[in-house]
Write a protein that binds this DNA or RNA. Structure first.
Length: 299
DNA sequence: ACCCAGGGTAACT
DNA sequence: AGTTACCATGGG
């Protein structure tokens, strides 16, 4: 079953290749059609870009019940008619999952119009329209951003794939992201081939604390920004920046403002007195637009 | 060979 | 409270 989901202002390319996720790959058919294939958490998908949204191709429908009416009328692959109507339980589970993943509920037009009051942000927005902040699985986000430290994106992708192949469940052509419980039981001999270097003891501390309940990731989601940040920072290897990435890319806490070398440069050069007022309410989203703008510009 | 990567920790001033 | 060496590895 194919499901069209209406999500205005979403570019798969700009979102899935923006360095907030590491498990999507671009595939082109012989006809030149572009499809993004990947796994979020334990759920695999092939997704096609549509003019005002996306189509989930051959969606997984494992054990999910939903009405025949909804199947026929609302979410067939007919880009012209159906819309994403929030997270109503009437919707097929696959639509709810992916709608939530791509944050279909958030009105990006309104946010980006506000950003455009600022000159630098206006340029960042105009060159990256369609970039959205995802709502990723917390444990996956935590581990992948621990792995991201002092590392480049291509290599992070390799580390994550090896980790999933070693400890995740097979799913379609790939592997789901491992559970904290499984990773917590990993032996040194199993971890060695991942080649994560000094990050190995960090992901193990994270897996053990999550598995033991010392760090409760659903509690982090319910907590406010500062409290959630303090919880995450109780993990060895989770500092200011990694915590902010998890709070933003998993929990969509837009107060989070991950500050890497690029953002530090941008702030020092253009925003010595801080971000403009028009970005105050959505700092994290502004951050991602600035990150992409300057990362691409010098590449 | 060299530089650096979506950094954090520990050990310093 | 603010610096700095060191950490493992491999992509460019």
């Amino acid at each position: 079953m194919n499901y069209y989901i209406k999500i205005p202002c979403l570019s798969l390319e700009r979102t899935l290749e923006s360095g907030q996720c590491f498990r999507w790959r671009r595939e082109e058919s012989d006809g030149g059609e572009v499809i993004y294939c990947g796994i979020a958490g334990t759920r695999a998908a092939r997704i096609r870009q549509e003019p005002d949204g996306i189509t989930i191709l051959d969606a997984e429908e494992s054990g999910v019940r939903f009405g025949e009416r909804a199947k026929r009328e609302n979410f067939a692959a007919r880009p012209e008619s159906p819309t994403f109507g929030g997270l109503s339980s009437e919707l097929p589970e696959a639509v709810r999952f992916w709608g939530h993943y791509f944050d279909a509920e958030t009105d990006y037009e309104a946010i980006l119009n506000r950003f455009s009051e600022d000159e630098i942000l206006r340029r960042a927005v105009s060159e990256n329209r369609g970039l959205r902040i995802l709502r990723q699985e917390p444990f996956e986000t935590l581990i992948t951003f621990i792995l991201s430290q002092n590392n480049n994106i291509p290599r992070i992708r390799g580390l994550v794939e090896r980790l999933c192949a070693a400890f995740g469940e097979p799913n379609g052509s790939g592997y789901g992201f491992p559970t904290a419980e499984r990773l917590a039981r990993a032996e040194p001999s199993e971890l060695e081939p991942i080649r994560a270097g000094f990050r190995t003891r960090y992901i193990m501390d994270a897996a053990k604390k999550v598995a033991a309940g010392t760090v409760d990731l659903s509690e982090v989601g319910r907590a406010d920004y500062e409290t959630g940040k303090a919880m995450l920072r109780g993990i060895v290897g989770v500092g200011e920046k990694v915590a902010d990435c998890v709070l933003l890319f998993a929990y969509h806490k837009t107060e989070a403002f991950p500050s890497d070398v690029w953002i530090k440069r941008v702030m020092a050069e253009y925003y010595k007195n801080g971000l403009p007022e028009c970005a105050a309410e959505e700092k994290g989203i502004a951050q991602q637009y600035l990150f992409e703008y300057f990362r691409k510009k010098t590449k």
